[in-house]
Amino acid sequence: MDKQAEGENGMIDFLYFFINPALLKSTLVLSTPILFACLAGLFSERAGIVDIGLEGKLLLAAFGSAAFAAYTGNAWLGMFMGVFVSILFSMLHGFSAITLHGNQLISGVAVNFLAVGLTGFLGKAWFHQGGNTPALSGNSRFTAIDLPFAESIGKIPFIGAFYEDVLSGNAIWVYVALLCVPLTAFIVYKTRFGLRLLAVGEEPSAVDTAGISVPKLRYKALLISGILVGLGGVYLSNGMLAGFGPKMSAERGYMALAALIFAKWRPWQSLWSCMLFGYFAAFAIRYGSYDFPVIGRVPSQFMDALPYILTIIVLGGFIGKAIAPKAVGEPYSKEH
C-alpha cells in the first residue's frame, strides 16, 4: 500500500471516529427528550411565557408514565398519565403566570422543586425501591420499531446504512419527536394560530386590540407545550430507559432552553441544536474511557460535563446574539 492510500485510510478512520452509526444512533436517542422539551419551550416562549419548569415537567411526566405503566401493565395508559401530569403542571404555571400575573421564573422554579420532591417521595412510598419504579417490560414498555424495508434499503451505502442502523430500531417517540419539527414549523409559520402565537409573544396589546383574547391564546400555547414536554418525559422513562429513577431528567429541561436560545426560537434550528446537545452527550458516553492519541485518557467526569459546558457557552451568549420574543416573561394586563 502506498503512502497516499494509507493517508486516506487514516482520514477515513478519523472521520469514522466522529461519525459512526453507533454514535449517531445514541445522538438521536439522547436528543429526543431534549427536542420534545425544546419544542415545548418554543410554543410557550413564543407566546410570551418563560418556562423554566420544563425540567420539572420532564421529570414528573417520566415518573407519571413509568409508575402508571408499571401499575396497569400498559405502556399507552402510562403515556396518557405522563402527559396528563405534565399538562396539569403546565396549567398550574399558566394560572400563576397568566391569570395571576405572577413572576414566571418563580413559578417555573416552584414546578422544578415540586417535581424532584414529589417524584422522590411518591416513588419511595409506592414502590419501596429507593425511588425507582419497577423495571418495565412486555406490554408496559415501548419497544424499538423496525422501519419498513430497513434490511433491503440498508444495502445502499451510506444513506442505506444510516436508515437501517441509525433511524430504524428506535421507540416510537423518537419518530414522533422528529415529526413534531415540521409540524411545529407548519403551525407556527403557516396557520392562523401560529400568527397569533408569534404576535402574542411580541406585542400582546396588538393581539388584544385586534379582538383576540390574550389569556386564552397563552393557555392554548401552554397546553401544547405541556403535551410536548410530557411526551419527552414519557420517552425518558419508557423507551430510552425502562423505568423511572430519581432525578433522571438530569437538567435536560435546561439544556432544552439553551438549545431553544441557540435556535433563536425557530423550529428547524431547534432540531439541529438539540442534535448538537445529543451528540455531545453521546460522545461523552461512547468515549468516556477512551485513550485519545496524544492527550491520552480524558477524565470521564469531564466528558460527562460536555453537554453542560455547551449549555454555558450557549447561554453565555458566545454564539451570536439571540433576540427573544419581545414580551417574553412579562404578564399582560390592559390597565397600564
Binding site: K190, R192, L198, A199
Partner: peptide
Amino acid sequence: MVHQHFMLVAPFSVLDNIILGEEKNFILK
C-alpha cells in the same frame, strides 16, 4: 382605532399585521 402607541408587531410583515385577528381560514395562504 389608531392608538397613540401603535399596536403593531414589529418583526411581522405589514401584511401579517393587517390580517392579524381577521384571518378567515386556519391555513394562512
